[in-house]
C-alpha cells in the first residue's frame, strides 16, 4: 500500500528519502573526500541526516541531542583539530592508496553487506505490549531510575575525559 505523493504521508516519505540521501551522501563524502575539512562537512551532513532519521523513529529528543552534541560539539572539536594540524591528506591518500584503498573498500563493503544480510534475514518479532511510548518524560524517568547507575558512570566518564584532555593538552604559555 503506497501513499499518494501529495498526501501528508507521501510528503513525509519523500522527506525521509531526502534524509536517507543526505545521510548516505554525507557518509560517502566523509569516507572518500581528499581534504579533511570536506570529510568533516560530509560527517556533519551525515549527522544531520541521521538526526532526521531519529525524528522518524519517533524520538525528536534524541534527534535534537544528536544535532546539539554531534554537530555542535564533536564536529567543532574535530574542526579545531583540523585547523591545528592541517594535514595534507590529499598527498597522503595518494601515497597510501594502492593496497589499502582496495582493502578498505573490500572490508567496508563486506562488513556492510554482512550486517545488512544478517539484518534482513532475521525474523524480527514485534513486542506484544509496549511499556511506555518512549517520550522525553519516560526517557528521563528511566534515566533516573533503572539506568541511574549508568547515567552517573557516564557523567564520571565525561568528567574524567574533560580533565584528562585538559591535562594532556595543557602546556603552554604560562610555562614561559
Amino acid at each position: 500500500m503506497n501513499p499518494t505523493l501529495l498526501s501528508p504521508e507521501g510528503l513525509s516519505g519523500l522527506v525521509f528519502l531526502g534524509l536517507v540521501a543526505v545521510t548516505i551522501c554525507g557518509a560517502v563524502i566523509a569516507t572518500a573526500a581528499k581534504r579533511l575539512i570536506r570529510c568533516l562537512t560530509g560527517l556533519v551532513a551525515c549527522f544531520m541526516g541521521v538526526a532526521g532519521l531519529y525524528y522518524y523513529l519517533g524520538s525528536p529528543f534524541v534527534a535534537m541531542m544528536q544535532l546539539l552534541i554531534y554537530v555542535g560539539a564533536i564536529a567543532i572539536v574535530i574542526a579545531f583539530g583540523i585547523m591545528l594540524a592541517e594535514p595534507d591528506e590529499a598527498k597522503l591518500v595518494k601515497k597510501k592508496s594502492g593496497l589499502s584503498g582496495v582493502l578498505s573498500l573490500i572490508a567496508g563493503s563486506a562488513v556492510a553487506w554482512g550486517l545488512a544480510v544478517a539484518a534482513l534475514r532475521a525474523d524480527w518479532m514485534s513486542p506484544a505490549v509496549k511499556l511506555n511510548d518512549g517520550s522525553v518524560r519516560d526517557v528521563g524517568m528511566s534515566l533516573l531510575t533503572t539506568y541511574s547507575m549508568v547515567f552517573e558512570l557516564v557523567s564520571v566518564v565525561l568528567l574524567v575525559a574533560i580533565l584528562g584532555s585538559l591535562a594532556l593538552a595543557r602546556t603552554g604559555r604560562d610555562k614561559e
Binding site: 560517502v28 572490508a107 567496508g108 550486517l115
Partner: peptide, 9 residues
C-alpha cells in the same frame, strides 16, 4: 549497516 561499512572502510 552502510554507515558502519563506510566507517570501517
Amino acid at each position: 549497516a552502510m554507515l558502519f561499512g563506510f566507517g570501517v572502510c
